[in-house]
């Protein structure tokens, strides 16, 4: 799972009001190169919750993202490269996503988060 997806995912447990962002417990992170597309990054920048994104990237061991960001930074190639790398090239392979409200752990195995809810969580 990439941080792109992490930034859209929230805990869907019944009764949870703010299930976003899920906290990352990383056991294994892998990197896969992808070609960069500036237009896509610019569009995603508008949708991304930056704070959650930075926190998640740190949870994955990547510390090169600035604490705060605004769209003017998209003109900098250095920034774009980092944004691209964190958004699309880092994969959480093994670990867990933790619901911020209930502490419920959603295990991640072979890169796939298990978001299935138990009967009493629906």
């Amino acid at each position: 799972m990439r941080l792109l997806t992490h930034n859209m995912l929230s805990s869907n447990i019944k009764g949870v009001v703010n299930g976003f962002p899920l906290r990352i417990e990383a056991e294994k992170v892998v990197e896969k190169n992808v070609e960069m597309n500036g237009d896509f990054l610019k569009k995603m920048f508008e949708k991304i919750e930056w704070k959650a994104f930075v926190e998640a990237s740190r949870g994955m061991g990547y510390t090169e993202l600035p604490e705060e960001a605004d769209s003017s930074m998209l003109d900098s190639n250095e920034f774009l490269n980092r944004f691209h790398h964190a958004l699309l090239e880092l994969h959480l392979e093994e670990g867990a996503l933790v619901c911020p409200e209930t502490g419920r752990r959603f295990p991640v195995k072979k890169g796939i988060p298990n978001m299935l809810l138990h009967e009493d969580e629906v």
Binding site: M8, L9, G19, P113, N114
Partner: peptide, 19 residues
């Protein structure tokens, strides 16, 4: 694509206006 193990019948835990 990124893959999620989940049941669509439980509703999608996805943020507003993302897709």
């Amino acid at each position: 694509g990124d893959l999620l193990l989940g049941d669509m019948g439980q509703g999608l835990g996805l943020r507003f206006g993302m897709f």
